[in-house]
Design a binder for these strands. Structure first.
Lengths: 114, 114
DNA sequence: TTATCATATGAATATAGATTCATATGAAAG
DNA sequence: CTTTCATATGAATCTATATTCATATGATAA
């Protein structure tokens, strides 16, 4: 017993409305994907057109390896897809929610200036 | 020079459309806030009603200290606010974008089952 | 004013995750 | 088939950050 007050009513009410632990974890994992500058930049770059790994690396002035690692994470999460084109590996946005979610974040930031 | 192909055209085109580095960082930082299960749970709990720290701690079965630390992060980011009520410190959602953003993530997850 | 309750907070720890380095893989050109 | 180019990947490193522990703070009740 840590406290004098009895919160059991509020707790059971709120608890009932809370999604499952698994879903809440998945939500966290999803947003974690957007919670990294490199990944945000990659996704944003793909808004315009598909790009190969080395183009992204040049664009972001980062090592090819770092980009590949992040692309793998994004691909595992099915936010991006890839296809071969000759020697290049072209990556593209695989999910339109990406645009919506990033767009919402964008709005939040730009509407914020008090 | 790392590659034979010349991506300069694509790069300058995409580069021109890319938001500033600062904004992209802010975007990452924003999503980082949602990228943690504990914070997601806290925010979700506050969808229903304002809650005091100890109620949140009980609800999530976590230590009061851990909750306080996370609440501080959320408050610094102005996603939640707080007010005194007797001995309790009540926290509430301070930004409606929170609902929208989490809602979008939710949709993404629930629409995903192929 | 003192004791108590609710919360905040600094330091320490533990863990996750991003980047780099070296190298493997795999397709295509010669 | 060999070489080269583009990418992928495992291991190591380094940094960020979530949680815990101990304790400080600050308001209220006695």
């Amino acid at each position: 017993m840590a406290h004098k007050h009895d919160h059991s009513q509020v707790i059971s009410r709120v608890s009932a409305e809370l999604p499952s632990d698994e879903l809440l974890c998945d939500l966290g994992d999803l947003f974690k994907l957007f919670g990294d500058t490199t990944r945000i930049k990659i996704l944003y770059s793909l808004f315009e057109s598909e790009l190969c790994v080395c183009a992204i690396a040049e664009l972001l002035k980062m090592e090819q390896s770092a980009i590949s690692h992040q692309l793998k994470i994004l691909k595992d999460a099915k936010l991006v897809g890839s296809r071969r084109s000759g020697r290049l590996n072209m990556y593209y946005l695989a999910d339109d929610h990406v645009r919506t979610i990033i767009g919402q974040g964008f709005e939040h930031l730009t509407e914020e200036e008090e």
